[in-house]
């Protein structure tokens, strides 16, 4: 990965009918990076992508492509291509003509077009499908045509808007691997939009977590998972137990009436904080060995582990463990200082 920045968003804002869709987005994207915009529906990730693609205009801010401002460059002149959410293949054209569309617009030589399209069909494993109508293809095949149609133009940046959203789980996993491979072999910058955190974690170099039109955190998948910046990120990236706590002093926090050592510092004394603990970091131990006590309310087998809901005072803990405690037994809960994540309370607007 080189360090040269290909795309930069500066103070981008967008308002739809009085509701802010994007609030002061600042983001840079490096060449050959696989970057994912991750967030729930309505968080602004698709709007961001559409602004980069040129289908939507920002109300404020600048969009720089290789250092040049492209705010006013129309979509058809931008060196980016898009794979749309529901493919948006041209139904009246066959597979070949769909993929060749961009090249024909550029008035390329017919022989060159045939060769390029042929190479793309091979890349997406659709050799021999050129004459087929796109309506006769399965979802996965349509997806591949959409990717080929975008990639054949050799874009500098490929935008993907929930490209695997319509596929079943197994096909989705396969396509994730294929997309990642394509991105690495072709050396193209991918900007990928999804609401699926697993997909984001497994494919991306960088993840941008968004909510309510604001960027919550930017980082590598490991950073985002291990060091979530706030309770929203922690909850969205994997499941979490989030409790109200009070910081006594550095390295000591109170939650559920217990003072527990932790590894965080730098908060004000008596500051109200969010205490975030991953379900797999809660250890189930015999009653007398735990710092907390709870009753197992339900146990669900999840394959690799059991998911237990354990009620302790007013809070129900979600616990993932390979060992199972039977329902209605009272158990102890232990949490290591290292597994307690203290986060600033989000200022509720």
């Amino acid at each position: 990965m080189t360090d040269s920045i290909i795309l930069e968003l500066k103070n981008i804002s967008k308002i739809y009918d009085d509701t802010p869709a994007l609030v002061d987005i600042n983001l840079y994207i490096r060449k050959n990076e696989f970057i994912t915009l991750l967030g729930p529906s309505g968080c602004g990730k698709t709007t961001t992508l559409r602004i980069i693609g040129g289908f939507e205009e920002a109300d404020n801010g600048d969009l720089l492509f290789e250092g040049k401002n492209i705010n006013n460059l129309p979509a058809y002149k931008r060196k980016v291509n898009t794979v749309f959410q529901k493919y948006a293949l041209f139904p009246h054209m066959n597979v070949f003509d769909n993929i060749a569309f961009g090249l024909k617009i550029k008035k390329m030589d017919k022989g060159v077009i045939r060769e390029k399209v042929g190479r793309m069909l091979k890349l997406v494993n659709l050799e021999g499908f050129d004459k087929r109508s796109v309506n006769s293809l399965s979802g996965g095949q349509q997806q591949r045509v959409a990717i080929a149609r975008a990639l054949v133009n050799e874009p500098e940046v490929l935008l993907l808007d929930e490209p695997l959203g319509a596929l079943d789980l197994k096909l989705r996993k396969e396509m994730q691997v294929e997309l990642k491979n394509m991105q690495q072999t072709l050396g193209i910058t991918f900007i990928y939009v999804t609401h699926d955190q697993e997909e984001a974690l497994s494919m991306s170099d960088t993840i941008v977590v968004m909510n309510n039109g604001e960027i919550q955190q930017i980082g590598t998948p490991e950073d985002i998972y291990n060091e979530p910046k706030n309770a929203f990120v922690a909850d969205f990236i994997g499941e979490s137990n989030i409790l109200d706590g009070i910081m006594e002093r550095d390295y000591l926090v109170t939650f559920m009436g217990k003072q527990v050592p932790c590894v965080d510092k730098g908060f004000a004394t008596q500051e109200e904080v969010d205490v975030v603990i991953r379900p797999e970091d809660v250890k189930v131990v015999p009653r007398e060995e735990g710092i907390l006590e709870g009753v197992v309310r339900s146990v669900t087998f999840k394959g690799v582990h059991y998911e237990m809901m354990i009620q302790s005072d007013g809070y129900t803990w979600m616990v993932h463990s390979t060992l199972m405690a039977p329902e209605n037994t009272t158990v102890g809960l232990n949490i290591l200082p290292d597994d307690i994540h203290i986060m600033k309370k989000k200022v509720t607007a």
């Binding site: 693609g53 040129g54 289908f55 129309p74 979509a75 058809y76 002149k77 980016v80 291509n81 898009t82 749309f84 959410q85 529901k86 493919y87 948006a88 293949l89 041209f90 139904p91 009246h92 569309f101 961009g102 617009i105 550029k106 149609r149 975008a150 133009n153």
Partner: peptide
């Protein structure tokens, strides 16, 4: 019509007029 067809044509380099003639009109 899929509402993104027009945008897809623009995305692939077609001017608005070309997008209308080659994609919207046939549809």
């Amino acid at each position: 019509m899929n509402k993104h067809l027009y945008e897809a044509a623009l995305d692939l380099g077609a001017t608005p007029a070309e997008a209308f003639r080659k994609v919207i009109l046939p549809e």
